[in-house]
Design a binder for these strands. Structure first.
Lengths: 145, 145
DNA sequence: ATCTTCCGATCAATGGAATCCATTTTTAAA
DNA sequence: TTTAAAAATGGATTCCATTGATCGGAAGAT
């Protein structure tokens, strides 16, 4: 992880489909070197994924919410297995505080969200925050080069 | 938005750097058509961004947290302007419930997180949830083709 | 200090992929 | 059914990524 790697990562966070040639020009090194460095970072796990952010509202999923849920530590294994298999779950974190889990979900309607929340009750008490707007949408963080 | 567009979006959500040729083969249409469809979806805003998910822990930002904050509606404009300019903010949503905002952040240390939370106090009361682990990391949702 | 080895970079060439454009097909509307 | 508009195709061209050979520099051993 040197300055050039950070520069590559910054560019890729802005646009994952940028060409090797463009990266090469911006970093003042050859494109085979860019390719090799990217492979290294993929192998090492520094680069987790190249992912496309789509407009879920336009795609028919206008309801976004964060669900807090208090899961008994004993049930965590089962809970993880369940939550991982639900396609509507965009992210799930184990967090500190009164509720142990924070889940980000999208749904076609509030009714379907409600149904999902009901199905979660078997794991523990929930508290749901519906998203009204997103002033800062999913983005990366610029690393110091 | 037809079946082919959804197929393209599903593939791009899995891997944003997939080639036009590979997409063409999987969708049984020519690569110029794939290119045209992608441009349409970029123009229409259906595709928001191609973005690279990196391992922030490995990159020196091991502290991830969700900050709830109760912002007075009057101060929202100012708050949005501020929060948008903080690089450590990976996402910010306006939500229902006792706290009006939910902010996802990463930091180098708990001390720096603390400093940031202190700087937020001028906007309102906060409640922070530190992330212990992430059973489901940022991902897309498969659309029905 | 010198030699050796290894890692990483570059260059040039080749193979492959993306774009462009003319043509054809399909779709939707009159 | 006819026509206009939109979208898909195929082939040609241009552009890009990958490969393999070579060079240079840094680290370690003698």
């Amino acid at each position: 992880m040197d300055s050039i790697d950070r520069k590559i990562l910054n560019r890729l966070q802005q646009n994952a489909r940028v060409s090797l040639k463009a990266l090469a020009k911006e970093c003042y090194i050859s494109s085979p070197t860019i390719s090799a460095r990217m492979h290294h970072m993929e192998q090492s796990g520094m680069i987790k994924n190249y992912y496309t952010l789509i407009d879920y509202k336009k795609a028919g999923y206008p309801i976004k919410a964060f669900i807090n849920i208090k899961v008994d530590p004993v049930d965590k294994g089962e809970f993880y297995k369940y939550i991982e298999a639900v396609p509507n779950v965009l992210e799930c974190n184990c967090v500190s505080g009164e509720f142990s889990m924070l889940i980000k979900v999208i749904f076609e309607s509030t009714e379907l969200l409600d149904t999902f929340i009901n199905s979660l009750q078997r794991f523990g008490k929930t508290n749901t925050q519906i998203v009204f707007s997103t002033p800062v949408d999913v983005r990366g963080m610029r690393l110091n080069e």
